[in-house]
Design a protein around this nucleic acid. Structure first.
Length: 346
DNA sequence: ATAGATGATTGAGT
DNA sequence: ACTCAATCATCTAT
């Protein structure tokens, strides 16, 4: 701040008597004969300053210019410097260097892990692959789901990045705007660089809290997407007809002991193009549902029994298989089915 | 739109 | 580890 000539000593007072914020010398003196003119000047300046925000931009600009050129301006500047010194609006060290917010760190880590905030490709597909592995589905048939997941994830990532960029840009714009404003104001009132720095910090904190909200909602979106992708129930597809027939064939031809061994399960899984776990699920469901309502499955049982009987007949070529599949519930001759229904067909 | 079918999950029992 | 039983979430046929 340049040295300002001290024009205001010994006169003054002027319409601000007893103002608590003003230095002593401003509040004493009654104004001499030529004090009236200065009184008027200072009154004008203050009036203009007080009303400057009520005016349009152009008006304000003109007013500001007029103020800067006003002959009393250096004096006012000095006074403001003194007030500032006295009121000690000191910028204390002020809780700077705030420790990194743990929640923000969590969010950042998660976004990184999910491949949202990290490098363009690598992380994302890794996370998706992990998710795919966790879902336990057959590698081949969930590739569609997988790409769907990836597409949605990259959609989220794109939104995240554009939003983030927007915020950063807005933050920078706003910061430079405020800094320019402060710099300009520093011509009329004393502003230390420290104050500007503090103001910038405040702005950055505000914007980073907005960013945190963005990160939070992005995390939520990813979590929802992930849970949908991982919960196989949500993307359940019925097995194709052929697979169901293979499974049913085995079930009804082993009705007395419908518990396929590990090897049998593997074989069935391969034939049906599903996983061993899915075979186990299927048999678990089938057993319990068959047992619960044998009547309902009677027709199905008869059908498969007949089919296996026919197959057996064909397989043994013309082996004079006289016994027609008229007793299908015997399930091709399997002994004492464990879920044997009491009623016979027809 | 709805009921029933169906594949997956969960928790208890062995 | 495997199965049962209940339940969930979705699919499918009506």
């Amino acid at each position: 701040m340049d040295e300002q000539p001290r024009l205001m000593h010994s006169h003054t007072g002027v319409g601000m008597a007893g103002h608590p914020g003003l230095p002593q010398h401003m509040q004493e003196g009654t104004g001499g004969t030529d004090g009236d003119g200065r009184k008027q000047d200072i009154g004008d300046i203050l009036q203009q300053i007080m009303t400057i925000t009520d005016q349009s931009l152009d008006e304000a600009q003109a007013r500001k210019h007029a103020l800067n050129c006003h002959r009393m301006k250096p004096a006012l500047f000095n006074v403001l410097c003194e007030i500032k010194e006295k009121t000690v609006l000191s910028i204390r060290g002020a809780q700077e260097e705030e420790p990194p917010d743990p929640q923000l760190m969590r969010l950042d880590n998660m976004l990184l892990a999910e491949g949202v905030s990290g490098p363009e490709k690598g992380g994302g597909s890794a996370a998706a692959a992990a998710a795919a592995a966790a879902s336990g589905g057959a590698g081949a048939d969930n590739s569609a789901e997988h790409s769907d997941y990836r597409a949605k994830l990259s959609q989220i990532r794109q939104i995240y990045h554009t939003e983030l960029e927007k915020y950063e840009q807005a933050c920078n714009e706003f910061t430079t705007h405020v800094m320019n404003l402060l710099r300009e104001q520093s011509r009329t009132r004393p502003i230390s660089p420290k104050e500007i720095e503090r103001m910038v910090n405040i702005i950055h904190r505000k914007f980073s809290s907005i960013q945190m909200q963005l990160k939070q909602s992005t995390c939520e979106a990813v979590m929802i997407l992930r849970s949908r992708f991982l919960d196989a129930r949500r993307k359940r597809r019925n097995f194709n007809k052929q697979a169901t027939e293979i499974l049913n064939e085995y079930f009804y031809s082993h009705l007395s002991n419908p518990y396929p061994s590990e090897e049998a399960k593997e074989e069935l899984a391969k034939k049906c193009a599903i996983t061993v776990a899915q075979v186990s699920n299927w048999f678990g469901n089938k057993r319990i549902r068959y047992k619960k309502n044998i009547g309902k499955f009677q027709e199905e049982a008869n059908m498969y029994a007949a089919r296996t009987a026919v197959n057996a007949a064909n397989a043994s070529s013309h082996g004079s298989q006289a016994n027609s599949p008229s007793t299908p519930n015997s399930a091709g001759g399997y002994p004492s089915p464990c879920y044997q229904s009491d009623r016979r067909i027809q």
